[in-house]
Design a protein around this nucleic acid. Sequence first.
RNA 1: GCCCGCGUGGUGGAAUGGUAGACACAGGGGACUUAAAAUCCCUAGGCAGGAAUGCCGUGCCGGUUCGAAUCCGGCCGCGGGUACCA
Length: 887
Amino acid sequence: MSRFEPSTIESKWQTAWEQAGTFTATRDPAKDKYYVLEMFPYPSGRIHMGHVRNYTMGDVIARYKMSCGFSVLHPMGWDAFGMPAENAAMERGGHPKDWTYGNIADMRDQMKPLGLSIDWSREFATCDPEYYGQQQAMFIDMLHAGLVYRKNAIVNWDPVDMTVLANEQVEDGRGWRSGALVERRELTQWFFKISDFSEELLSALDGLDNWPEKVKLMQRNWIGKSRGLEFAFGTVDAPEGFDRIEVYTTRPDTLMGASFVGISPDHPLAKQLESHDDKVAAFCAECRKGGTTEEAIETAEKLGYDTGIKVRHPFDTSWELPVYIANFILMDYGTGAIFGCPAHDQRDFEFATKYDLPITPVFEPTDGASGLTEAFVPLKSETVRYVRGFAGEQVQTGEAGVNSAIDFCEENGVGHGVTKFRLRDWGLSRQRYWGCPIPVVHCEDCGVVPEKKENLPVELPYDNGNEPIDFAVPGNPLDRHPTWRDCACPSCGKPAKRETDTMDTFVDSSWYYARFTAPRAETPTNAEDAEYWMNVDQYIGGIEHAILHLLYSRFFARAMQITGHLPKKAVEPFDALFTQGMVTHEIYLTRDENGRPVYHLPETILEYTSNVDGKKKAVLKLGVTRANMDPKTVSADVLTEASRQGLFDGYEVETIPSAKMSKSKKNVVDPVNIIQAFGADTARWFVLSDSPPERDVEWTASGAEAAYKHLGRVWRVAGDIATQEGAGKGDEELTRTVHKAIHDVTMGIESFGFNAAVAKLYGLANAIQKSKAGADARRDAMKVLAQLMSPMTPHLSEEIWSMLGGEGLVIDAPWPKADPKMLVEDTVTLPIQINGKRKAEISVAKDLPKEEVEKLALANDAVVKALAGGQPKKLIVVPGRIINVVI
RNA sequence: GCCCGCGUGGUGGAAUGGUAGACACAGGGGACUUAAAAUCCCUAGGCAGGAAUGCCGUGCCGGUUCGAAUCCGGCCGCGGGUACCA
């Protein structure tokens, strides 16, 4: 008998599927459809184990649904715009377009050997003009529908490179290339009006029954609906035009504990003061240092500046509060102004302590007074005693206190109750080259005018005339392109300038699922195809997309419905969501001359040395010694890295604990080596077998070989069975095992319990191998095993299926059904617990009455011994499960 | 900082209120072999014990329950997100 050779059988069956057109999705009205989608990858150039895991999971579902008779759509494409392409051009020269399409070709070549059931005829990249042109058309429709507008927004500004930085490019408040202290700067930017949909996006979460609760909870918190009071303080000694300061508070019940008013450094009053007062200007400049992230703002030291302006308390005009400019107040949320109640807010407490402001409790715990070493911040649902309340009962919950405070204030003409959302509008402008151009034109006479649809796509220029675009110069090359910006105004025809901002890449990924239903259509979507294929029945992706990508997609589907590009039923585009865990890996780094980290690929790590000073260390194996820099034996990337850093074999590197695999940290593992050594089925089997799919998995190289051995064993056992002939005595035990496996594996696949399903498949394979049943029974069992394994190890399964005389392709064979009669056991083993600890077990008929079970239990030796002649306090019998004797 | 998760043998993990450690990996022992590889069989949470068995045990502390890895509260550690990484 020949050896198990994955490379031979895998290419054979991939060809067979291709020739049969097995994975071509067709709109077949006679069949129910099933749309499986995995989040499409960014074309970094190399697939990694995370991709293998993600796409294998989707493939299991797709193949299983095909076997169940569905018309399946399982497409693949590329999230191809984004910063890494520009960074590559900056570092190594070349063009983002060439880099991206080259990477796509490489990654496609790496993915195809996996044998995924993908309809490659639908493939596209978001950087294809055919794709982003349709996106521009929708943008124009959305602009007309009032879903897009312009306003000022704050960006990270690198004052040395004179360019806008992404949050990722700000490290410890400094620009990643220049090292300059980053400032916050205002620019006019394009926005989607997602905030108009806050209520809708929130309430519609309740209908997403097949989404993980944690994702819905994260989105609820992100949207952040709150009810509060908006009112104005009258000012004293304020500049003209500022006789009132509007504030918003979610805790109006603490109004009698107010001790200061805080305004954002971007508040109109702060700006007014700044323009006349150097000290204020200096303070505001200080506040604007650092990055724009919420994290940077929230964790920065809380700073305040006393403006000298006072406000009058609305309930007591003789009570005056100071007005501070404070760095932690966001202009984007509420009114950009708050009142602080230090007794019941930890941040305000620290602020008041720092600036020596009064701390006046408004309420206390019902079981005694709280000390004032920190703010007393109970849950709103908790009952407290108000000592400085002004509305409602003295003892009430915080929530009741808030509601009565709002009612009281409205009745007394102090402000009004309002509902606000934390969700901000979606800023889509990017001052970058490698993105979808925003299709508008700036005309001196007509203002901002959308491009005519017949002029779409507004294509990115490849070069500056004949000169290559220089990406090494900071800033957006579109801004300094000699001719691209120049155009005719679509409205009046006079010379005008194109918008040079491109779109956030989240726009690209907010509708690709819809485009896959008709990827070559001359319009963004095709109504019939969208009607048939939408919604995505199963969407699979990483938990890191729980908020932004998934929320933006939900918004975009609504915007597409309003502009006529999607049917009403598709406003929630993803019926079911599964968030797989990430593949993580340790990170290896050395430091450059400035102490900045330089990361290294795991494949360049030779071994661990022992822990030194509590820090784990590893050494490099670059295949490079100082003497040997032979380009024939060392890959170009490694050589470049090695020579740039002066690294060589044995060089010691720092290791830091596992984190999400990311290209920038270089903690990525290359699956290509594994596929070459063991075959795709082994890689697929391995990524499914070892971890629950929703959990992160730390990649370790060991284990792939074990998967390979097991598949070889299955292949061998199948081969043995294929050569045997003649009926034997059917073995009921084997048949029962087979039906139990059908049931368990089917349930496992349906519930994303792939690792548990794999364990059951190990069990079935072991049972078949050890069974003494006749050849025919074992052949039938092995054919079922091939079917059950086929979503996971499709090539091996086809081979076995054909070896054993199965009809046609295993992928076309109907999924086996478990006979319910075969799943029922006649007798059950009941553990007997004494005081909750297992002490014995008895075997009883399945339907034995409870009283009989009790008798048997009490007659059990261990129970008799433990009772020592006494009576049990309690006897619990859970039929079919357990007996517990309480003594 | 804030929001959301996760934490079980040497390792990956199973069990989602009912026998903790299924199924594997690495390990140990054995069979086959001149030998090795491959394959097959046995063993395996910790401690004590020759064994039967007993005690301990799911990050830590406390609670609910006849019964908790599982539910609740508090803490510790790690990870994801934090609106310009995708």
